[in-house]
Design a binder for these strands. Sequence first.
DNA 1: TTTCATGCATCAGCCCTCTTGATCCATCGA
DNA 2: TCGATGGATCAAGAGGGCTGATGCATGAAA
Lengths: 305, 305
Amino acid sequence: MKLSRQFPLNALRVFEAVARHLSFTKAGEELGLTQTAVSYQVKLLEETLKETLFLRQPRKILLTEAGARLAPKVTEGFDILASALNEMQGVAEGTLIIHSTHTFASHWLARHLGIFQLDNPTIAVRLETSQAVIDFSKTEADLAIRVGTGEWPGLKSHFVMRNHFTPMLSPRLADTIGGVRDPLDLLKLKIIDPSDPWWRLWFTAAGYPDAPLESASRSRLGSQAVEAAAAIAGHGVAILRPDFYQDDVAMGRLIQPFDLTCEDGSHYWLVYPEARRQTAKVRAFRAFLQKTLPSFDKGPDSGIM
Amino acid sequence: MKLSRQFPLNALRVFEAVARHLSFTKAGEELGLTQTAVSYQVKLLEETLKETLFLRQPRKILLTEAGARLAPKVTEGFDILASALNEMQGVAEGTLIIHSTHTFASHWLARHLGIFQLDNPTIAVRLETSQAVIDFSKTEADLAIRVGTGEWPGLKSHFVMRNHFTPMLSPRLADTIGGVRDPLDLLKLKIIDPSDPWWRLWFTAAGYPDAPLESASRSRLGSQAVEAAAAIAGHGVAILRPDFYQDDVAMGRLIQPFDLTCEDGSHYWLVYPEARRQTAKVRAFRAFLQKTLPSFDKGPDSGIM
DNA sequence: TTTCATGCATCAGCCCTCTTGATCCATCGA
DNA sequence: TCGATGGATCAAGAGGGCTGATGCATGAAA
């Protein structure tokens, strides 16, 4: 007997319940079926096996020898299946896989995940980072932090924080030109990745739409973290998300010469597949962001700039 | 997770196959499904569990952590179910439960079953006897020997032997009246159960339709075996199936004074539910009767009288 | 004994699950 | 660049399985 497609697995499940209750009606109640349906399924199974499994006596049924031999093993088999599912779900519930960009991971998550772990000691966190926009069907992340407009088909998204930027540089470098007071002062220094459109946006916002930015086609360094490192080393002025470099400012490794920040319409979002919205671990992470970030889920047009 | 009605068991079976092959297409081939159907079932299971089980990569799929944890247990569970079914069928195949009347069991089966057991050493035989016409849905007999016309709805029947009868008595009793030569001589003796219609049939066949049989309403002794015992003890003349008492005749305990036998239209039949026609043990028993009884399956109107 | 309650079998009809076939898409290898 | 491979998606259709009504047999209660 192979459990091939033909085999009525559901009938086996019904049999298992009937064997436990020794009653078609009761089994039906357990399974949410009518007695009629139970009768049908049992008959179907008996016909498939060519074995009578129950003796129908008036007002009660008995297991035949064959049925009595079959029942305990079937119960065991279904128990194993059920526990496999439970266990899998339990373990899955217990591990939260977060995908994020390097930048967000190192500058925000790394700093705040401790709180989450304190609040949710039973949930292990695995952090996966890459610059790519991940496809939930191709990696097994439970949720991701993405930059974008918040519109992704099939995914639920919650606003996390604005994605704004402003020039930042090392105080030593600023000193070489006697300090930075006017946006144009920046042009005296080396601009790290001047082809980044953020520079044009920022200078425009600062009132200098025509600032002469070298259009040397040197590509971006790849990630903001690398650019920041270059800036800290005094190699030039980078345009960075100030939120992420508060520590460096505090430690005197970077300064933010102007309060003016800019944005390009894309922001940080928490996203996950619609289907998994209700899982406990995702809910826990959402609650954590809610608690930690005042701007969470409020949309890009509210909250502090 | 309860394996309630809602749970797509079939999808779980499909998942199991996919996890083994790591291919939707291959799994489909094993199960006799199209790749489309497999895809649907896997998706259904994933939605039910709210867990991605496979990572769909181009030209290949991988199990996710959750899937990898689930697969072996699911395989184990299905293996247990499959072996339970196999085992049950094996054991069931190995035990033949025969239902029969006391008479046929003690006078024919008991004498010949040895041959069947020699021919089929792997089949254990269990004999259940009662006078009642059994209902296959209420007892777990595989087959039965019944007396009747051979017409039972839902049951397959094979003719076994004619059901004929003739007066029999102990030789000592015959001697008390100087021997039995004419049917009317029997009337000098006590007739065991004269209300049995067989007596009237036999006397009519013998040419004495008006033989004065006491119509005392004493009920039948219940079974032919009891009546035969009474006859052997010399308590009177019984009307019996001569086939069944050859031994008693040979041992001088009974005599059959007349060759004339009669019948009432009912005969011995082998019957079993249509659905079980092809099981090995039933086939073996049919073959045994075929070999042992010249009249088997030839119908009541052929063969020796 | 009659009547009621229980429990399973049967039947016809319908819904919805599941399957199929066609098509599309992405990737890998030549 | 093209063909082969393997999965996803879609619309359509068939058939399996469920339901509610009904029947039947029995045991319990009146």
